[in-house]
Amino acid sequence: MKVFVTVGSTKFDALIQAILSDSTLRVLKKRGYHRLVIQCGNSAHEFVNFVDGDRVHKVEQDGVSIEVWRYKPSLKEAFEEADLVISHAGSGTILEVLRLGKPLIVIPNPTLLDNHQEEVATALSELGHLKSCTPSQLPTTIEGFDTTSMVPFPPFDGNRFQRLLDEQMGFV
């Protein structure tokens, strides 16, 4: 099975550090995730520092094959191929991943000011749509994650806004 990790458009050193830690890699292997793909953005880590431009870096460690790259124009394909997504808690990414029906663990980025990642992550985890944790809780969260127990996320309902606007503009 395959795990896809994304830090979004900036960087998130703590997330890269957590995913590449020995304890996380051990847990991944134990749970049957033998392939790990990481979109690392501008994050710094001894392991990703020399990954450049469009280059993809591949390595095998603790029985997990790891693939690292910095950016791609669209992550859709990577999300679709994944059996588990681990991500920063940006709301755009959350919506995209949940609508694809993929199990999702989010780690709110504490270094971003006033971005309310924590708020939306907590609210959606209380509703049972995803798991939210800190970087240090990542191994235990993966270990205890029952992906079948997640509450399905409702599909996009464009009629809601259409109704509001039609009402305001006198169409209904």
Binding site: S91, L95, N115, H116, Q117, E119, V120, T122, A123, F161, L164, L165, Q168, M169
Partner: peptide, 28 residues
């Protein structure tokens, strides 16, 4: 025009700065 403000999905418990500023001014 009619002014319609939609607060972001990311705002769960508190409004953004533009939300706070525009709240009394917009029609919806």
């Amino acid at each position: 025009p009619e002014l319609i403000y939609i607060e972001s999905f990311a705002r769960v418990r508190s409004l953004s700065l533009s939300g706070k500023l525009l709240r009394p001014l917009v029609d919806r």
